[in-house]
């Protein structure tokens, strides 16, 4: 429910910079994405839940897992470029199939002082 654990020690912001620190170098666009799916049992339960309303816990979990993994991948790319922060981060999701979600996160990899 909170911030992802593994960002490889990088700072992430979705404003133009890391407040209080100057950007020394930048390395361009980095992105992370993942496509995840829940098994049919959860799909079935979700269909039942669709009748009654309320939060679909299984799918929330699904998106959380996807978010964590996507961020981790973006940070892995940034790390490989020698960055220590990613700024101007944006998210995007789409559904590629019933019961599966694609999560995409992208930003600019930078080196801050």
């Amino acid at each position: 429910m909170s911030a992802p654990e593994s960002t490889h020690g990088l700072l992430l912001t979705n404003i133009e910079s890391v407040p209080g620190r100057a950007i020394v170098e930048h390395y361009g666009l980095v992105s992370g994405s993942t496509v995840r799916s829940k098994h049919v049992g959860r799909d079935l339960l979700a269909s039942v839940r669709n009748v009654f309303g309320g939060e679909l816990k299984a799918y929330t979990e699904l998106l959380e897992e996807a978010r964590d993994e996507a961020i981790e991948r973006m940070c892995a790319q940034a790390r490989a470029l020698g960055a220590n922060a990613v700024v101007n981060v944006r998210f995007s999701t789409s559904s590629v199939a019933a019961g599966a979600a694609e999560l995409y996160v992208y930003g600019t990899a930078v080196q801050v002082a």
Binding site: H26, Y27, S31, A80, L81
Partner: peptide, 14 residues
């Protein structure tokens, strides 16, 4: 700020 071009390694997102 300076742009330092580097290649992103394969295999992270796929």
């Amino acid at each position: 700020m300076k742009y330092v071009p580097k290649e992103i390694p394969e295999g992270i997102n796929a």
